[in-house]
């Protein structure tokens, strides 16, 4: 019996970020237009496992997903134990572009979810001319804090369990149980304080509402896809962001929540494939 090997290949990349050496893990599959995928806060590239295995995508797109530093199989930098991890807009934006430059990806599409859905809007603003398009999943210009994040890194509460507990209700009720619990498992594995550190960008540092009007969608088309069951970055948040970006295309996805590519891949691809078709046509 032959082994059932997936087409996905994982590698490590050495990357200098802000003067510090990082060892970044990334996975890729397919060929063609580079499609860089950004995972959500406190999770990792496994969220894109279905996309990496979808021939309808990988036939024309080189799907590449990397674990951010501190996440998944990417280690934190040396000295991590002496600092508090806090993601900022500048660090996040720089990290993605350094990754793109290191792999010499030409005119990539960048797709991100949640914090990734926010930062792709910033990328469209600051680096739109070198990007083919951005796809924002669960995108917003800003989200006000709506719970006490202290509990996410607290000696009296298991960090993995509470992180999964926080996002438990962000998954749509219709999502299949195996994908729901796979998505939660990723959250249960996140390092101490990492989810909380990512939310610093999501709820504090990353308010880019007033800069969204600088995006030129003729230069870098913006596609926004948001699940209806996401109460964190709700459809209203996405519509508000879109109202500030002339030419942005918005679709509200039914029966999906905050993690469309991971919680219900079959439902998600119904919305994603037409967007990828459009990108393929204008490429």
């Amino acid at each position: 019996m032959s082994a059932l090997l997936e087409p996905t290949i994982g590698r490590y990349l050495s990357l200098d970020l802000d003067g510090r050496e990082h060892r970044l893990y990334f996975e890729e599959a397919g060929q063609g237009i580079p499609l860089v995928c950004l995972h959500t806060a406190g999770s990792d590239t496994r969220q894109y496992r279905a996309l990496l295995n979808d021939p309808a995508v990988t036939s024309d797109f080189r799907v590449i997903a990397f674990d951010m530093p501190w996440h998944g199989k990417s280690s934190p930098p040396i000295g991590w134990h002496e600092e508090e991890y806090r993601l900022t807009t500048e660090a996040y934006t720089t990290m993605i572009m350094r990754f793109v430059e290191s792999l010499e990806l030409e005119q990539p599409v960048v797709m991100g979810c949640s914090i990734g859905g926010r930062v792709v809007l910033n990328l469209a603003r600051t680096h739109g001319s070198v990007l083919r398009a951005v796809i924002g999943l669960q995108s917003s210009g800003h989200v006000d804090p709506y719970y006490d994040t202290t509990w996410l890194h607290h000696c009296d509460v298991h960090g993995g369990e509470v992180s999964a507990g926080y996002v438990y209700g962000l998954i749509a009720p219709q999502s299949p149980d195996p994908d729901r619990w796979e998505t939660l498992w990723h959250y249960m594995q996140s390092g101490p304080g990492v989810f909380k550190g990512d939310l610093h960008f999501y709820m504090v540092d990353g308010d880019i509402r007033d800069q969204l009007c600088d995006i030129d969608t003729k230069d870098c088309p913006v596609f926004l896809l948001t699940g209806e069951y996401d109460y964190s970055c709700s459809p209203e948040h996405t519509r508000d962001a879109a109202s500030r970006i002339e030419g942005a295309q918005v679709t509200i996805m039914e029966q999906l929540g905050h993690f469309p590519m991971s919680e219900n891949p079959d439902q998600f691809r119904r919305y994603l494939l037409p967007v990828l078709d459009e990108i393929r046509q204008f490429s």
């Binding site: 709506y146 719970y147 109460y231 709700s234």
Partner: peptide, 15 residues
């Protein structure tokens, strides 16, 4: 049995 968006979670209703 199938709560509407926003009704499906304690934290959604807390928000």
């Amino acid at each position: 049995p199938l709560p509407a968006p926003g009704d499906n979670d304690i934290f959604a209703l807390r928000k």
